[in-house]
Protein backbone atom coordinates (compact mmCIF):
# COMPACT_ATOMS: atom_id res chain seq x y z
CA UNK A 1 0.00 0.00 0.00
CA UNK A 2 2.74 2.41 1.02
CA UNK A 3 4.78 1.47 -2.04
CA UNK A 4 1.79 2.00 -4.28
CA UNK A 5 1.19 5.47 -2.84
CA UNK A 6 4.85 6.36 -3.36
CA UNK A 7 4.71 5.12 -6.94
CA UNK A 8 1.57 7.17 -7.58
CA UNK A 9 3.14 10.29 -6.11
CA UNK A 10 6.36 10.01 -8.11
CA UNK A 11 4.47 9.24 -11.33
CA UNK A 12 2.25 12.29 -10.77
CA UNK A 13 5.25 14.55 -10.15
CA UNK A 14 7.10 13.17 -13.15
CA UNK A 15 4.06 13.63 -15.39
CA UNK A 16 3.71 17.26 -14.31
CA UNK A 17 7.41 18.07 -14.88
CA UNK A 18 7.47 16.29 -18.23
CA UNK A 19 4.35 18.06 -19.46
CA UNK A 20 5.94 21.39 -18.51
CA UNK A 21 9.04 20.36 -20.40
CA UNK A 22 7.09 19.25 -23.46
CA UNK A 23 5.22 22.55 -23.78
CA UNK A 24 8.36 24.64 -23.00
CA UNK A 25 6.49 26.66 -20.44
CA UNK A 26 9.33 27.41 -18.02
CA UNK A 27 12.43 26.44 -19.96
CA UNK A 28 13.30 26.84 -23.61
CA UNK A 29 13.71 23.56 -25.44
CA UNK A 30 17.03 21.81 -24.93
CA UNK A 31 19.57 23.35 -27.29
CA UNK A 32 17.53 26.44 -28.16
CA UNK A 33 18.96 28.62 -25.39
CA UNK A 34 19.96 32.14 -26.40
CA UNK A 35 23.11 32.81 -24.39
CA UNK A 36 23.39 36.42 -25.59
CA UNK A 37 20.36 37.43 -23.53
CA UNK A 38 21.71 35.85 -20.34
CA UNK A 39 24.16 37.20 -17.79
CA UNK A 40 26.70 34.59 -18.93
CA UNK A 41 27.43 36.58 -22.06
CA UNK A 42 28.95 39.27 -19.84
CA UNK A 43 31.23 36.65 -18.32
CA UNK A 44 32.36 35.55 -21.76
CA UNK A 45 33.08 39.10 -23.00
CA UNK A 46 35.20 40.26 -20.10
CA UNK A 47 36.51 43.42 -21.69
CA UNK A 48 37.24 46.02 -19.08
CA UNK A 49 36.12 49.04 -21.07
CA UNK A 50 32.77 47.54 -21.87
CA UNK A 51 32.84 48.46 -25.55
CA UNK A 52 32.27 44.83 -26.60
CA UNK A 53 35.55 44.33 -28.36
CA UNK A 54 36.46 40.83 -29.41
CA UNK A 55 38.49 38.86 -26.87
CA UNK A 56 41.27 36.96 -28.66
CA UNK A 57 43.31 34.13 -27.19
CA UNK A 58 46.98 34.98 -26.72
CA UNK A 59 46.55 38.70 -27.38
CA UNK A 60 43.88 40.18 -25.13
CA UNK A 61 45.20 42.13 -22.16
CA UNK A 62 43.59 44.47 -19.66
CA UNK A 63 40.74 42.09 -18.98
CA UNK A 64 38.33 42.29 -16.06
CA UNK A 65 39.11 38.72 -14.99
CA UNK A 66 41.78 36.87 -16.86
CA UNK A 67 41.34 33.06 -17.05
CA UNK A 68 40.86 31.28 -20.35
CA UNK A 69 38.41 28.87 -18.74
CA UNK A 70 35.15 30.75 -18.21
CA UNK A 71 33.88 28.32 -15.59
CA UNK A 72 36.96 29.09 -13.49
CA UNK A 73 36.23 32.79 -13.86
CA UNK A 74 32.79 32.24 -12.34
CA UNK A 75 33.85 29.79 -9.62
CA UNK A 76 36.97 31.58 -8.38
CA UNK A 77 36.31 35.22 -9.20
CA UNK A 78 32.73 36.35 -9.81
CA UNK A 79 31.15 33.91 -7.36
CA UNK A 80 34.15 33.28 -5.15
CA UNK A 81 32.12 34.08 -2.06
CA UNK A 82 29.88 31.12 -2.96
CA UNK A 83 32.93 28.91 -3.19
CA UNK A 84 34.12 30.07 0.24
CA UNK A 85 30.78 28.98 1.71
CA UNK A 86 30.97 25.68 -0.11
CA UNK A 87 34.46 24.96 1.23
CA UNK A 88 33.06 25.73 4.67
CA UNK A 89 30.32 23.12 4.13
CA UNK A 90 32.97 20.56 3.24
CA UNK A 91 34.96 21.50 6.34
CA UNK A 92 31.91 21.09 8.59
CA UNK A 93 31.09 17.70 7.09
CA UNK A 94 34.66 16.43 7.55
CA UNK A 95 34.52 17.69 11.14
CA UNK A 96 31.29 15.75 11.62
CA UNK A 97 32.84 12.58 10.22
CA UNK A 98 35.81 12.98 12.57
CA UNK A 99 33.49 13.47 15.55
CA UNK A 100 31.31 10.48 14.67
CA UNK A 101 34.04 7.99 13.80
CA UNK A 102 37.01 9.09 15.85
CA UNK A 103 37.55 7.57 19.25
CA UNK A 104 40.31 7.84 21.77
CA UNK A 105 42.15 4.61 21.00
CA UNK A 106 42.38 4.05 17.29
CA UNK A 107 43.99 1.50 15.08
CA UNK A 108 44.05 0.78 11.40
CA UNK A 109 41.19 -1.25 9.95
CA UNK A 110 42.42 -4.82 9.38
CA UNK A 111 41.91 -5.50 5.68
CA UNK A 112 43.51 -8.98 5.57
CA UNK A 113 45.03 -8.18 2.21
CA UNK A 114 48.78 -9.05 2.47
CA UNK A 115 50.22 -6.95 -0.39
CA UNK A 116 53.12 -8.58 -2.18
CA UNK A 117 56.36 -7.02 -3.40
CA UNK A 118 55.12 -5.95 -6.83
CA UNK A 119 52.03 -4.28 -5.42
CA UNK A 120 53.98 -2.34 -2.82
CA UNK A 121 56.71 -1.05 -5.17
CA UNK A 122 54.41 -0.36 -8.10
CA UNK A 123 51.94 1.52 -5.94
CA UNK A 124 54.68 3.84 -4.74
CA UNK A 125 55.55 4.68 -8.37
CA UNK A 126 51.86 5.20 -9.17
CA UNK A 127 51.46 7.36 -6.05
CA UNK A 128 53.95 9.85 -7.47
CA UNK A 129 52.27 9.95 -10.87
CA UNK A 130 48.77 10.46 -9.44
CA UNK A 131 49.97 13.12 -7.00
CA UNK A 132 51.72 15.03 -9.79
CA UNK A 133 48.61 14.81 -11.98
CA UNK A 134 46.53 16.27 -9.17
CA UNK A 135 48.94 19.14 -8.64
CA UNK A 136 49.13 19.78 -12.41
CA UNK A 137 45.37 19.95 -12.67
CA UNK A 138 45.15 22.31 -9.69
CA UNK A 139 47.79 24.67 -11.09
CA UNK A 140 46.38 24.74 -14.62
CA UNK A 141 42.81 25.29 -13.44
CA UNK A 142 42.52 28.64 -15.20
CA UNK A 143 43.62 27.27 -18.59
CA UNK A 144 42.27 23.73 -18.94
CA UNK A 145 39.26 21.80 -17.63
CA UNK A 146 39.64 20.77 -14.03
CA UNK A 147 40.79 22.97 -11.21
CA UNK A 148 41.00 22.84 -7.48
CA UNK A 149 38.20 20.41 -6.73
CA UNK A 150 39.17 17.47 -8.98
CA UNK A 151 42.87 18.15 -8.38
CA UNK A 152 42.42 18.00 -4.62
CA UNK A 153 40.41 14.82 -4.92
CA UNK A 154 43.18 13.26 -7.02
CA UNK A 155 45.69 14.11 -4.26
CA UNK A 156 43.38 12.39 -1.80
CA UNK A 157 43.07 9.35 -4.09
CA UNK A 158 46.84 8.94 -4.11
CA UNK A 159 46.71 8.81 -0.31
CA UNK A 160 43.96 6.20 -0.62
CA UNK A 161 46.16 4.10 -2.91
CA UNK A 162 48.99 4.12 -0.36
CA UNK A 163 46.53 3.11 2.35
CA UNK A 164 45.36 0.12 0.36
CA UNK A 165 48.77 -1.01 -0.86
CA UNK A 166 50.88 -0.65 2.26
CA UNK A 167 50.12 -2.47 5.49
CA UNK A 168 52.14 -0.14 7.67
CA UNK A 169 51.12 3.19 6.19
CA UNK A 170 49.19 5.51 8.43
CA UNK A 171 48.55 9.11 7.40
CA UNK A 172 49.71 11.94 9.59
CA UNK A 173 46.27 13.24 10.51
CA UNK A 174 47.68 16.13 12.47
CA UNK A 175 49.61 17.30 9.42
CA UNK A 176 46.41 17.21 7.39
CA UNK A 177 44.59 19.30 9.97
CA UNK A 178 47.37 21.90 10.01
CA UNK A 179 47.49 22.10 6.19
CA UNK A 180 43.73 22.38 5.99
CA UNK A 181 43.41 25.16 8.52
CA UNK A 182 46.37 27.06 7.03
CA UNK A 183 44.97 27.03 3.50
CA UNK A 184 41.47 27.85 4.70
CA UNK A 185 42.65 30.87 6.64
CA UNK A 186 44.86 31.95 3.72
CA UNK A 187 41.74 32.03 1.53
CA UNK A 188 39.94 34.29 4.01
CA UNK A 189 43.04 36.47 4.45
CA UNK A 190 43.30 37.00 0.68
CA UNK A 191 39.64 38.02 0.67
CA UNK A 192 40.16 40.44 3.55
CA UNK A 193 43.22 41.88 1.76
CA UNK A 194 40.98 42.68 -1.19
CA UNK A 195 38.51 44.36 1.16
CA UNK A 196 41.31 46.41 2.72
CA UNK A 197 43.19 47.50 -0.39
CA UNK A 198 40.55 47.43 -3.09
CA UNK A 199 37.08 47.98 -1.79
CA UNK A 200 35.23 44.67 -1.78
CA UNK A 201 35.81 41.18 -0.47
CA UNK A 202 38.04 38.92 -2.62
CA UNK A 203 38.94 41.61 -5.14
CA UNK A 204 41.39 40.62 -7.85
CA UNK A 205 44.45 42.70 -6.90
CA UNK A 206 47.19 41.44 -9.19
CA UNK A 207 47.84 42.19 -12.86
CA UNK A 208 45.85 40.03 -15.25
CA UNK A 209 48.42 39.53 -17.98
CA UNK A 210 47.78 38.04 -21.39
CA UNK A 211 44.84 35.69 -21.84
CA UNK A 212 46.18 32.14 -22.04
CA UNK A 213 49.53 32.47 -20.27
CA UNK A 214 50.37 30.33 -17.26
CA UNK A 215 51.15 33.44 -15.20
CA UNK A 216 47.94 35.29 -15.85
CA UNK A 217 44.52 35.85 -14.33
CA UNK A 218 45.80 37.58 -11.21
CA UNK A 219 44.73 35.92 -7.96
CA UNK A 220 42.72 33.10 -9.51
CA UNK A 221 45.52 30.47 -9.75
CA UNK A 222 46.57 31.22 -6.16
CA UNK A 223 43.00 30.81 -4.91
CA UNK A 224 42.51 27.61 -6.90
CA UNK A 225 45.76 26.08 -5.60
CA UNK A 226 44.65 26.91 -2.04
CA UNK A 227 41.26 25.30 -2.71
CA UNK A 228 42.98 22.22 -4.12
CA UNK A 229 45.21 21.78 -1.08
CA UNK A 230 42.28 22.33 1.28
CA UNK A 231 39.99 19.85 -0.48
CA UNK A 232 42.80 17.30 -0.73
CA UNK A 233 43.70 17.45 2.94
CA UNK A 234 40.06 17.37 4.03
CA UNK A 235 39.17 14.33 1.95
CA UNK A 236 42.37 12.56 3.03
CA UNK A 237 41.26 13.13 6.63
CA UNK A 238 37.82 11.69 5.82
CA UNK A 239 39.41 8.60 4.24
CA UNK A 240 41.66 8.17 7.27
CA UNK A 241 38.63 8.34 9.55
CA UNK A 242 36.78 5.74 7.51
CA UNK A 243 39.74 3.35 7.62
CA UNK A 244 40.26 3.38 11.37
CA UNK A 245 38.28 1.64 14.06
CA UNK A 246 38.25 1.75 17.80
CA UNK A 247 40.47 -0.71 19.59
CA UNK A 248 43.92 -1.10 20.96
Amino acid sequence: MKNFLALLLTLFLGYMIMSWLATNEFFPAMGDVDVTTRVSQKYIERDVNGNSEEVVFGEATNLESGPANTVTAIVADYRSFDTLGEVTVLFVSSLGVALLLGGTKQRRLELNFHPNFMLRVGSRALFGIILMTGIYISIHGHLTPGGGFPGGTMIASSMLLLYLADDEFRAKVKGFKILESTTGSAYVIIGLLGLLLGGYFLENLLVNGVLGDLFSAGMIPIIYILIGLKVGSEISGVIDNFLTEEGV
Binding site: P145, G146, P150, T153, I239, F242
Partner: peptide, 21 residues
Protein backbone atom coordinates in the same frame (compact mmCIF):
# COMPACT_ATOMS: atom_id res chain seq x y z
CA UNK B 1 34.34 19.19 -19.48
CA UNK B 2 34.92 20.71 -16.04
CA UNK B 3 31.90 18.96 -14.59
CA UNK B 4 32.85 15.75 -16.39
CA UNK B 5 36.34 15.67 -14.83
CA UNK B 6 34.96 16.38 -11.37
CA UNK B 7 32.23 13.77 -11.64
CA UNK B 8 34.67 11.15 -12.93
CA UNK B 9 37.08 11.65 -10.05
CA UNK B 10 34.57 12.15 -7.25
CA UNK B 11 31.39 10.34 -8.25
CA UNK B 12 32.80 7.09 -9.45
CA UNK B 13 36.06 6.98 -7.52
CA UNK B 14 35.76 8.49 -4.09
CA UNK B 15 32.09 7.91 -3.24
CA UNK B 16 32.34 4.24 -4.25
CA UNK B 17 35.38 3.71 -2.04
CA UNK B 18 33.61 5.34 0.91
CA UNK B 19 30.61 3.03 0.47
CA UNK B 20 32.87 -0.02 0.20
CA UNK B 21 34.83 0.93 3.32
Amino acid sequence: PDVAVTEAVIGSGLVTSLFVF
